[in-house]
Each structure stands twice: as structure tokens, then as C-alpha cells.
Amino acid sequence: MNRLAYNKLVDRFFKLAALAATIVGLVFLFTLVWDIAHDGAGRISWSFLTSFPSRRPERAGILSALVGTIWIMGLTAVFAFPIGVGAGVYLEEYTKKKNLITRLIEINIANLAGVPSIIYGLLGLGIFVRALSLERSLLTGALTLTLLILPIIIISTREALKAVPFSIREASYALGATRWQTTYRQVLPVALPGILTGTILALSRAIGETAPLITIGALTYIAFLPESVFDPFTVLPIQIFNWVSRPQKGFAVNAAAAIIVLLVLTLILNSIAIYLRHRFQRRIRW
């Protein structure tokens, strides 16, 4: 066999190997979805969604976890959105020169994005639970997750602001607008779809977080609904974890069913993000 034919053969073999590697991920994903659907779909019912947890798997439901998840998501969004956007705006629109402080903030945000989520749990335990005496409340959980997803929101806000053409800012300044008027009335509206997309993706990460909430002491068994932000809570991932950890087969089925609910919620959030991105990307052409 000559050199050229040999090279071609190696190339073809390598291409197949690379394609196979790509497909492994896809196969895995489909197996996972199929396995969970197979295990849990039959368990999903109205009473599963509207019952409290129970010692008997067939009577247990996810009501308190679902309500807790909705509370936590709402509160986290309320805290994280303004702070994250504010920080992104500051770094992108208010720092003309890169001084030491902004450099420091940037490096710091990059590093925070890589800190494991369980460390945020220890932070929440040390600061919110103990130092601020907020106990194992919804507020503690939401604040902890806020700190966890802030880097993601800040980074995506900055990307969205960077994509706004400078000519818009120039036009506004040339009319005698201040920095904030320009930012708030011209730049932010244009960047908003991108910012919202990033925020929703950040929230879809927060919705699946388990470890930091366990660390701050979120309960695993709750048979009541929280009435204020100072009440204890549980969330879907913790409920799933709790059921997975039990030996009885019935609880594993419950876990699979709860996973389906969790994945559907995550999917809804992601679809909204994708929809926003597509909807608004098309509209404006410069």
C-alpha cells in the first residue's frame, strides 16, 4: 500500500472514531431521557403533583417541593437580575479605563464562576444562616443561589451590552444625554433580550442546584407550604435526592417522576431563552 492510500485510510478511520465520540454523548442523552421516562412517566398524576411527601411511596407527592422551587426561583430572579445587570452595566458602560479595581472585579468574577456550588452552600451557612440569623429560610436559599448565579448573569449582560453598536451611544450623547439616560433609555432596551436570555439560563441552572441548599440546611421532608420568606422549605432536587437515597423501589419511581417534572421546568426555561434569542435577533438589523 502506498503512502497516500495509507494516509487516506488513517483519515477515514479517524473520522469514524471522531464521529463515534460525538455520537456517544447523544446516545447517552437519549438513554438517560428514555430510562427516566420509562421509570417515572407512569407515576405522574394530578395527585402526585398536589400531595405532600409521605412515608408510603404510592401516596407521596411533590407539592411542597414544587411550591418551594417556584418560591426560590422567583426570589432568586428578583435578587439576581437587578444586581447582575447593575454589575454588568457598571463594568461595560461606566469604566472607560481599565483601572485596578475593575481589573480586580473582572478576575474575581471569572474565578467565582468556577467555584463549586457546594462552596456557596458553606458561604450561605456561614453568612446568611449564622451571621445574619436568617436560619434555613427561603430567603437564605434564594440569597445563596443569587450569589451562585450572579457571575453568569454579569458575564451574559456584558456580552449583550458589547453587542450594542457604539453608534447608538454616540447618537444619544450627541443630543446631550447623560451616561445613565443613554444606558437606560437606549442601550439597555436593545441589549435586553440578550440579558434576559442569560438570566433565564442562569435560573435554569439554579433550579437544578441541590448541594448548596442541602448545605444551608434546607429540609428534606416538609409537609406544609411556606407562607413567608422566613419559612423553611424544600425544593424538587432535594426531594429527588431524598427519594433516590431510599432503598424501596417505590421511592425510586417517585424520584424518576419528580425528575420528569424538574426536566420539564428546565426545558420550559430553556425554550423561553431560545425563543427570546431568536425572536429579537431577527428584528433589528443595523
Partner: peptide
């Protein structure tokens, strides 16, 4: 002192 730019830049 107002200004008009090289490329038209109306607000969206």
C-alpha cells in the same frame, strides 16, 4: 453643539 454622524444611526 449637535452632531450628525457618518453612518445614519437612528435609534431602533
Amino acid at each position: 453643539i449637535g452632531m450628525v454622524f457618518q453612518r445614519p444611526n437612528p435609534f431602533p
